[in-house]
Amino acid sequence: MTGAVDVRAVTKRYPGSLALDEVSLHVAAGEFMTLLGSSGSGKSTLLNVVAGFTEPTSGSVLVDDADITGVPPHRRELGMVFQHYALFPHMNVFENVAFPLRRRKVRGAELRRRVGDALEVVELGALGERRPAQLSGGQQQRVALARAIVFQPRVLLMDEPLGALDKRLREQLQLEIKRLHRELGITFVFVTHDQEEALTMSDRVALLREGRIVQVGTPQELYETPASRYVAEFLGESNLLDEDGGLLLVRPQHLRIGPPDGPGLRAVVREVIYVGGGLRIEVERPGGQRLVARTTVRPEELPRPGDEVVAHWSEHDSVNVPA
């Protein structure tokens, strides 16, 4: 399998700012890697460095051990799906998907077959004659996907491809992109600011902050053993407790709320909200710190705002976080 991407000590300096600070990252062939971060973290800059649209100030990018740092984007043979799709408005769906093939001198029946196949893969076989403006957001996204994979690139880069879609459509396309990844078996590098999306889709996640990678790992590693307070707070809801100079992380689903006479941290219930299948209970400790518990409790034990309670957890559910 091919398509391994190596980013080696890449720095990108703009006048007055440092977008990437000595970033190194290895993406294995066939892996689904997500670059996660808030806006300004450098995740899009990193993707653009790999794609070739941004030239790094220093450092290098390798694909399958070949240095491509100075290679212009159109010779990199990497597929890319853009934010807001970047479909060519003056071409219909077929011509959009055919574009990369025509550039590679694919003609005639071969062209029609491959475009048809790509459109089948994204389940848009019948819409070849339409213009991009006549498609829904979800359909446009699929065309952009078909166009990026039709020339069989070794790596597919995606820059917040689902950002413009509503929640249900986004979740549906997340599953389709996962399916596509399985079927094609090529490397995916996916950029998003949505931590839920990152955790659902990726083999591994690289979390960026202020131009640096703060942690790389599987979604489970990042969620369960965060390397810092920032990682813990970025991924999901978290309760962070100061303990002898260290930090203790207890996820809301592991925090239990009990009667005030039991062992644990004393607190007062502030809010009780019914969410989906369970309850979200927010309590306040004497110092003012708020803790969150997610639980499914029986109605007769339902705490009310103002009740005195105790928050506790079992030791194997808590994690020490480097401060």
């Binding site: 070739g52 649209f53 941004t54 030239e55 790094p56 740092t69 100075g70 290679v71 212009p72 984007p73």
Partner: peptide, 8 residues
């Protein structure tokens, strides 16, 4: 990348 830089 120098190609794109020159283009710029």
């Amino acid at each position: 990348m120098t190609a794109l830089r020159r283009l710029g």
